[in-house]
Design a protein around this nucleic acid. Sequence first.
DNA 1: AGCGTCAAGAAACGCGCGTTTGAAGCGGGC
DNA 2: GCCCGCTTCAAACGCGCGTTTCTTGACGCT
Lengths: 221, 221
Amino acid sequence: MSPTDPATADGAEAPEVEAATKNLVFNAAERLFALNGFQNVSVRDITAEAGVNLASVNYHFGSKDALLFEIFRRRTVELSRDRAKMLHEAADRHGGNPPVREILTALFAPVLRWLSPGHERRVSLQFLIRARSEGTQEMRDVLRTDVSHLRRFSDALIAALPQLPPEEVYWRVHFALGMIHQNRFAELDRLNVLSEGITREDDIDGLLKRMVDFAEAGFLA
Amino acid sequence: MSPTDPATADGAEAPEVEAATKNLVFNAAERLFALNGFQNVSVRDITAEAGVNLASVNYHFGSKDALLFEIFRRRTVELSRDRAKMLHEAADRHGGNPPVREILTALFAPVLRWLSPGHERRVSLQFLIRARSEGTQEMRDVLRTDVSHLRRFSDALIAALPQLPPEEVYWRVHFALGMIHQNRFAELDRLNVLSEGITREDDIDGLLKRMVDFAEAGFLA
DNA sequence: AGCGTCAAGAAACGCGCGTTTGAAGCGGGC
DNA sequence: GCCCGCTTCAAACGCGCGTTTCTTGACGCT
């Protein structure tokens, strides 16, 4: 039988002292999937990149799909935790009812921090963005069904905008999420071509301010 | 040899009096690709759905990838034409310098019109949205490189917002495009779950107004 | 009638894929 | 010293895929 259950590997967030092969596979897979898409990366590609045996994926994770889902699950939890923490801190600072701008910052900032060049979660973010459109049925079911984390943000926004019908708030959350998901490599490339290079995507603080400015104005409209 | 060059098939936009098989393949492929993703649909699926022989794809289009690109190319041209026409009309109405709201309407409206339930281009739109992330290298090269159509919109917005640095305008165009691309089946489903069904995605006019309101406020911020 | 051309059909080819198998290596525990 | 569990390894299996090949049919022309 295979030890797929323990799930002790943790891509680069702890020194690979234990289950080194599992971590090598995890990290190689995440990077290749993020760069080339899920269907364009074979188990052979992954194990070659990781420098391990072909059978390692099935031995340590059960199947290619299970490996994909494991990466997805771990990064999703991690990102949600970052966001929830920021929202919580903003709530603490404002007696439980943070203003729109701070809610949006909590929604955007973790993503943009991960996106920054050199950040160790940069490929994780591209992986997660890819999962929305290319993911397995299981991933997309999770994305569609599990909105509990998102609901904290919509609830906070409804409280912060009492004059706005909730229906309107939901739509605007939808728009704001679209703004985030646009930050794929391909779309940032396209923006670079369109603007002839004057948009600097590595200015993450500037980008955060730009996104919050745009979205805040949209919410207050 | 195969008659891949004529390219006279035109999915449902003319009665299938000529090259009936080619049209059947084109339409079946577009629908299946839009619904299930590019890599999850085989040539056998397409020909079975169309009720034609397995070899038809290669005979009429050369290859599966060429068929994909043909669909992509035709729908891209069609959508760009719709958008350019609306922008041109808006310019005519305002002596060459349309206001922000009308530029954004020209950017959004054709997409939303295609998206409306029952519209014959509804699946075409989902196909095009999928092409951004799942498309072949050839498609993504076109998307990244060919920004000529988009530049008309950014130029118009720069002219309409003379006090705003062009860099800022480009970023906001980027955000606005993200808002559009969020309108995939999966994301609309998710919104429905989040809002517990109070968001009505079939109210296309309402959605257009919502999107333009949000984006206009963002651009004027 | 005979021929040339184009479309449709049936069957197979070859390849790359995810996965499985069974053997070999390598520890620590009795 | 020997066994036992866990991990690694090389090799192969079986399958579905895109594509090709060759045959058959349909139709217009002289």
